[in-house]
Amino acid sequence: MTTTVTPPETKPVEKTKGPRLPKSARAGGQLHGGPIAYAILIVFTLVSLFPLVWTAIAASRDNQRLAQTPPPFWFGSGLFDKLEIAWKDANLGEAFFNTTIVAGTSALTIVFMSTIAGFAFAKLRFRGRGALMLIVIGTMMVPPQLSVIPLYMMVAKLDWTDQLQAVILPSLVSAFGVFFMRQYLIQALPDEIIEAARVDGASSWRVVWHVVFPAARPAMAVLGMLTFVQTWNDFMWPFLVLTQMGNPTVQVAVAGLGRGYTPDQSLIMAGALLGTLPLLLVFAIFGKQIVGGIMQGAVKG
């Protein structure tokens, strides 16, 4: 399980030999954080985590308690009852199933397509490569929201309302994925290995299968997770083509709970909590890899 994606270039701090430098010379990443640094980080972490914890607190209280001051700061006893009701009311069982399918399909497809495209852009020479790569980067600048109306017309025409393929297909366009894999493969895949495979008479496809995929595996895992998270949290488009009681994703179901006529705030919080828990779990387990992936994707040429 070697899923560290951080490139080997970031070496740990080097001890400076030779002439001693003034203290401020050991700057950048080299100084130890003082108490103030820790204090700021702890405050920031608390602010980041507090709304999530409070969602659980609110979900464990009943509605009357939420309509009092001061607001509750600790858990009540109703959490599991509320979770159960929210699960049924918001159609969350179906929603989880659907979202897993949508996010899973989308992640697998994007990872596969991005890897082969990223490989071509990173290591193969072909006419128009630079221009095509520019187009890929340019597509990142076009927000998907601007395309929803024709897509909606398409869905209406094909009668795909409430069907998952209506959500999956448009989610497969990922310029970020192509870019991400390209950046990774440029440095992670030595040209010599490809040439060696070529000399052995391997076709391009065999090179992809036997050389590129094994080399790209860590980055593929990270891209898969990032895509999964993103698709899981997609809001506007699923909200337009899926309905809460028809065939919802988690976001549609949770939003439906919030926008429905239930006056029960704690129930809404229970639904929001349920919708968030799976991803929080993923982050708790793979947090390090995801952090590495985001940072890896950030350093670009």
Partner: peptide, 26 residues
């Protein structure tokens, strides 16, 4: 250089894991 730097990094990414829907409702 920090202790528990991975923890801090992951913790501050928790809001990113939270969906627009859940976050807005809270």
């Amino acid at each position: 250089k920090l202790r528990a730097s991975t923890f801090f990094r992951v913790a501050m990414l928790a809001p990113y894991a939270t969906s627009i829907a859940a976050a807005s409702l809270v």
